[in-house]
Nucleic acid binder design. Structure first.
Lengths: 242, 242
DNA sequence: AATCAGGTTTGATCTGGATTAAGTGTCGGG
DNA sequence: CCCGACACTTAATCCAGATCAAACCTGATT
């Protein structure tokens, strides 16, 4: 079957997904009945952003929230002097913009694709509507916002009372499971989509980030191969990071 | 009538309040029916903390959330080296700890009274219960968490891309209404309960904070009298702060 | 009035991380 | 095989703000 979307003709073919099926795997919408999912899906539209393209900019009104299907998006702000700070990197399955639906404020961060990305935009009105119908949905939404709040508080802690090296170690360890590496299996962390973005996320310059990785490697804690970090001494790394 | 609470004998008399009446004025509970308020009030207990006393400490399990009735509470964390960073100052009518009710995690911040303080502790179970009954309550809770999230993102912006002076100016202006001062009426800001706490809240040392106030005063922008700041040139202050 | 204890200010010095600038891969395209 | 673009590293210098060390208030207590 040819693609009937005229705007897509000039672009690479886009993977097609079933919206309901994808949403059903997002924690927020899991446990929803087929009816509910249908109503949400009816208010959902796919959004495609090429690498570098801006999805939302600071000051835009909020019309709903976004879920990343594939690709990667950075959230950040720009200072009056044009300096940019990355607040969060959003990966597939994660979402952003929920909080703005509930307060009447425009975006304070921008969202920019770090790779060719597909998102789903879920309209505000459908969410608000469903909140009234389904207390479970409301609870999951509260839990989601709470987790985000918790994460931000942890970020503030890192920014304000951890050193650069500690923040880097924290980042490297953040999605290493507790039991990992105990069996001697090597643990690897991927630095896509680029060290500069991660440096900004950790609130430091790319130069400083580079030096810290260098020092950790010199100490025998990690091994850097391009954008892949192999953790050599998990226990000692955990110790250094607090 | 004598006070029958034996632990209170040795203390100053405590102002008595009607729990329902107080809660009804907290935005989260406004618009609630008398029935609902009664159920919430039944799960609410007063908590008294003397100046310097700790209400919650890092690692404590969360049993509900707190509303400040009178007094003042600081939220903050302590680094492994014992350095302390204030995240937020909670004033009467404000609350904290809501987010933890919805995720199963212990406190990451501590809460300490900055003055003799009365709080209300609202039990988790009553809140969860009421969320299922009252969609409006769920919406207000979502709005509350969203506002807090928004505020934290703004804080992160300030911490990461504003200078010390800009953060101080932002603090001085944060609860000055837009129209204030236009009529020539002097605008004053109170620095209770102490400059060191505010300095920490703004992520700087007391010394640095003091110097910034001194410089602003030297520039004719403000006048410092103990813990009261009189804003002399609102327009110029706004300009300096971005 | 004298004493004391916080809280605040002032001054001198130090430093983590930023800035600036010059390399060094490395990879896709011609 | 070379070129240019981009991503990263390395090195030298700089600076905002921290740290250290005294003084200095100001209000409460004796």
């Amino acid at each position: 079957m040819p693609d009937h979307d005229p705007t897509a003709i000039a672009r690479k073919s886009r993977p097609q997904i079933r919206i309901q099926a994808f949403l059903a795997n997002v924690p927020l919408f899991s446990e929803m009945s087929a009816d509910e999912l249908d109503r949400i899906a009816a208010a959902t539209l796919p959004v495609y952003a090429q690498k570098g393209e801006t999805v939302c900019r600071t000051g835009d009104p909020c019309t709903g929230f976004h879920v990343v299907v594939y690709g990667q998006v950075k959230l950040g702000f720009t200072s009056p002097q044009g300096i940019e700070k990355v607040v969060e990197i959003i990966r597939p399955g994660q979402s952003f913009g929920e909080a703005l639906m509930f307060i009447d404020k425009p975006y304070i961060v921008f969202a920019q694709a770090l790779a060719d990305t597909m998102l789903l935009h879920v309209c505000k009105h459908a969410v608000i509507e469903e909140l009234g119908r389904d207390p479970g949905f409301a609870r999951r939404m509260l839990a989601g916002l709470s987790r985000r709040l918790h994460g931000l508080v942890r970020d503030v802690e890192a920014y304000t009372l951890r050193s650069g090296a500690e923040r880097v170690i924290g980042y490297l360890l953040r999605d290493v499971p507790d039991g990992a590496g105990a069996d001697g299996a090597p643990v690897e962390v991927n630095l896509t989509p680029g060290k500069s973005v991660i440096a900004s996320r950790l609130n430091m310059t790319p130069e400083h980030f580079s030096r810290i990785l260098h020092d950790l490697a010199a100490g025998g804690l990690i091994k850097v191969s391009g954008r892949t970090i192999r953790i050599l001494d998990l226990a000692r790394l955990r110790g250094d990071g607090g």
